[in-house]
Design a protein around this nucleic acid. Structure first.
Length: 559
RNA sequence: CGGGACGUGGCGCAGCCUGGUAGCGCGCCUGCUUUGGGAGCAGGAGGCCGCCGGUUCGAAUCCGGCCGUCCCGACCA
């Protein structure tokens, strides 16, 4: 491809409204352009990268027996009403001229399950079906360029099995395929257990790529034996220094003390030997008291999991009504509401509020003074120890590049997608779903591989493997040789971008650095004096002068 | 949805406080010179100053409303 013919609007300066590195560099490099909040056009160069990713995903899905198809974006609302997902606020809803309600899908579970009704026998199982299709989401807040958008292309795959055992096998097959995909894309990534969110279903695994900008927090152990999303990460906190044990709770006057720090200081004790009460109200209006160690934070997604649904912090009036005290003086003893306590409170005696303003209780013991439901509620912290080996935990922001779910019969039951087993009895299909966002892989690659000059694509994703820069007053001789080199490389199966634009060398070099092709071949009068060209590795920037005749062989070697 | 910021040629910005002929850098077009890390000179094109309304003799500038975009948070298949 000739750069002079390419629609490649590169920018000398960062776009004013871009923060994330991938956002800045992809816009500057002419890969993408914004149309509106969360709506992006892939320009020719960006689309090449996108399609490279798509092809890798396609090959690996096909390799495990996936069958590619295509389902429409416009979808009758009826299907979504049956599964209950019509109520999700992120779903774009519209009507046709006759007033028939339609949705723009977040994912295609409903539609694929509609088709799966044509699976009628256990003999046809398992089935793996997938497509690459546009997804729309009415996001409350798009951000970060491609990191969080309102419309994007997803590869979503669906497995259909006769039972949980089959699903387990299908799930593992897809998991392995995902590992191969992300390896091939040249990304650093971690597979972690995850929340199932609005997908429904039992187990799910998230693939997270550490990145300077990201929506997730990835927790990993320095020894490499533990990785989790912060939403479910389990860290091991230090042991508290408990004061002397008491046979019964004892009141202490703590007027004006409303914070844990204040409390620990006032009583001269370790803040880890106190407990913190977080009153919340569930969707059905009932009040629950969450209890964590004083030096910990309540993790909201863990709490939502324990309560099996949404909740919000209780208001001051609700707190006063339920506990007869204000927020800073709450505790688990003698309350009428359900108490959910973090596992760290199982052993030992803690200080807690007495449910009277200005009064706390020492020596509170779970099981003796109150009967909580125990659960993992605390948010992991950076100074926690690894739950597997005791090593140090590391926190990084990360991009979610793939997510796989065991759905079970969440969709097949309401949509009545059933099959007959050997005994002739009708059973619902057991499903899994597996999603990858190529745009996010693209963003993650840029986040992980860039320098102050621009992008350094992994070879597998690069828009072109080699960029040839013809310089000097790119006279006819230089141009002719640059063109011939390009043809040689392409004949050897290497993709080439030839910068034949009438620009000064500095501008071409700057653009080449920005675009990030793995190799840059420079041809100019000086190199040609002795029949050579310069080959520069974008990453690491090692440059070598190579005879023109040996260029194709050399390029193949270092690429 | 709560908080904050911003909206001025294609891009990045100044001007606004204190109302009076719309400016700078980059890019773009033409010509000449130049050509191994974002050239120089000369000439030129291009702007509903986000939109609507108000105040005023007069509004990019002051006031009100709306819209849009970004950032933090809530949310997040």
């Amino acid at each position: 491809m000739r750069a002079s013919q390419l629609f490649l609007p590169t920018l000398r300066e960062d776009p004013g409204d871009a923060e994330a590195v991938s956002h800045r560099l992809l816009v500057r490099g002419g890969f993408i352009r914004q149309v509106s909040a969360g709506l992006w056009t892939f320009l020719p160069l960006g689309w090449r990268v996108h399609q490279k990713i798509v092809q890798i995903v396609r090959e690996e899905m096909d390799a495990i027996g996936g069958q590619e198809m295509l389902m429409p974006v416009l979808t009758p609302a009826e299907l979504w009403q049956k599964t209950g997902r019509y109520a999700i606020p992120e779903v774009f809803k519209l009507t046709d001229r006759a007033g028939r309600p339609l949705v723009l899908p977040l994912t295609h579970e409903e539609t694929i399950t509609f088709h799966a009704r044509e699976i009628s026998s256990y003999r046809q199982l398992p089935q793996f079906l997938y497509h690459f299709q546009t997804k729309d989401r009415d996001e409350p807040r798009p951000r970060g360029g491609l990191l969080r958008v309102r419309e994007f292309i997803m590869k979503d795959a669906y497995s259909f099995d006769r039972d949980e055992e089959g699903l387990e096998q299908s799930f593992r097959l897809h998991e392995a395929a995902y590992h191969r995909i992300f390896e091939r894309c040249g990304l650093e990534y971690y597979a972690v257990q995850a929340e199932s969110g609005m997908m429904g279903g039992s187990e799910s695994a998230d693939f997270l790529a550490p990145a300077g900008s990201g929506q997730n927090t990835l927790v990993t152990c320095e020894n490499g034996d533990y990785a989790a999303d912060l939403e479910i990460a389990r860290g091991v906190p230090r042991a508290p220094e408990f004061p002397e044990r008491l046979d019964a709770p004892e009141e202490v006057q703590t007027p004006g003390v409303t914070t844990i720090e204040g409390l620990a200081e006032r009583l001269g004790i370790d803040s880890a030997a106190t407990s913190k009460a977080m009153p919340v109200v569930r969707n059905d209006g009932t009040v629950v008291l969450g209890l964590v160690r004083g030096d910990d934070r309540l993790n909201e997604s863990k709490m939502a999991g324990v309560l099996r649904g949404g909740f919000r912090p209780a208001t001051d009036e609700e707190i006063r009504k339920a506990f007869g005290a204000s927020g800073g003086s709450l505790g688990p003893v003698g309350v009428s509401v359900e108490v959910v306590a973090d596992e760290t409170l199982r052993e030992g005696q803690f200080v807690s509020g007495a449910n009277r303003d200005g009064v706390h209780l020492r020596g509170i013991e779970a099981g003796r003074d109150y009967e909580p439901r125990f659960a993992d509620l605390r948010e992991a912290r950076e100074d926690d120890a690894c739950p597997k080996c005791g090593g140090r935990l590391r926190f990084q922001t990360a991009i979610e590049i793939g997510h796989i779910f065991k759905l079970g019969t969440f969709y097949s039951m309401p949509l009545e997608a059933t099959f007959l087993d050997e005994s002739g009895s009708e059973r619902p299909l057991v499903m899994g779903s597996y999603g990858i966002g190529p745009g996010r892989i693209m963003a993650a690659a840029v986040e992980q591989r860039h320098d102050e000059h621009g992008i350094a694509w992994p070879r597998a994703l690069a828009p072109y493997e080699v960029e040839i820069v013809a310089i000097g007053a790119a006279g006819p001789e230089v141009t002719a040789i640059a063109e011939r080199l390009g043809e040689d490389l392409e004949a050897a199966g290497i993709s080439v971008l030839l910068d034949d634009r009438d620009l000064r060398p500095g501008e071409k070099f700057a653009d080449a650095d920005l675009l990030g092709c793995p190799l840059r071949v420079t041809v100019g009068k000086k190199t040609l004096e002795d029949g050579r060209a310069d080959v520069l590795v974008r990453r690491g920037r090692g440059e070598q002068r190579v005879p023109v005749d040996a260029l194709a062989a050399h390029v193949r070697e270092v690429l």
